[in-house]
Amino acid sequence: MFDDLPDDVPRLETLRTWHAMWVARIDAKLAQARQREAEQARAAAAREAERPAWLLDYGLNRDREPAAVHVGDCRMAGGRSKGIDADTARQALAGGVRACTLCRPDTELGMLEQ
């Protein structure tokens, strides 16, 4: 099956050494890649844990009144958002702050929009 290999011991040992070096290099690179993927997974999990469940988005006006309530991962939430808990989100919605029409936090919280 492997008739293309040489027959003498010195050349076979040379080939074995050469391939052992390559296997060692591949193993080292594989270990680095696995470590990098594990670190990325840990970082993603940490970011996910830090993400609030609900967001209160503030308007551009000088008073910075709340403008909308969002689910924590809503793409429509702007940079002026602040993480809040579910009770605060319910109070804001009950107090007249509008629910985002994309993520529908009022539905997620089991409330009907007033």
Rank of each mutant, 00 (worst) to 15 (best):
D3K: 05
P6K: 09
D7S: 12
D8Q: 11
P10L: 02
L12S: 07
T14C: 11
L15K: 07
L15E: 08
R16K: 07
R16D: 00
R16E: 01
T17K: 14
W18D: 04
W18T: 09
H19Y: 14
A20W: 03
A20G: 06
M21K: 15
W22H: 12
W22F: 10
V23T: 14
V23L: 15
I26E: 02
I26S: 09
A28M: 08
L30C: 04
A31E: 08
A33T: 00
Q35S: 15
E37G: 05
A38H: 10
A38V: 09
E39V: 08
Q40L: 09
A41C: 03
A41Y: 04
R42D: 10
A43G: 02
A43P: 02
A44D: 15
A44Q: 13
A45G: 12
E48R: 11
E50D: 07
E50H: 13
A53M: 08
L56M: 06
L56Q: 01
L56R: 04
L56A: 10
Y58K: 00
G59T: 04
G59H: 01
L60W: 10
R62I: 07
R64L: 05
E65L: 11
P66D: 01
V69H: 06
H70R: 02
V71F: 03
G72D: 00
G72C: 11
R75E: 04
R75I: 07
G78L: 13
G78T: 12
R80Y: 01
D87Q: 14
D87W: 07
T88C: 00
A89F: 00
A89W: 03
A92W: 05
A94N: 11
R98N: 07
R98Y: 00
L102D: 08
C103Y: 09
R104D: 05
L109M: 06
M111A: 03
L112A: 15
E113P: 07
Q114T: 13
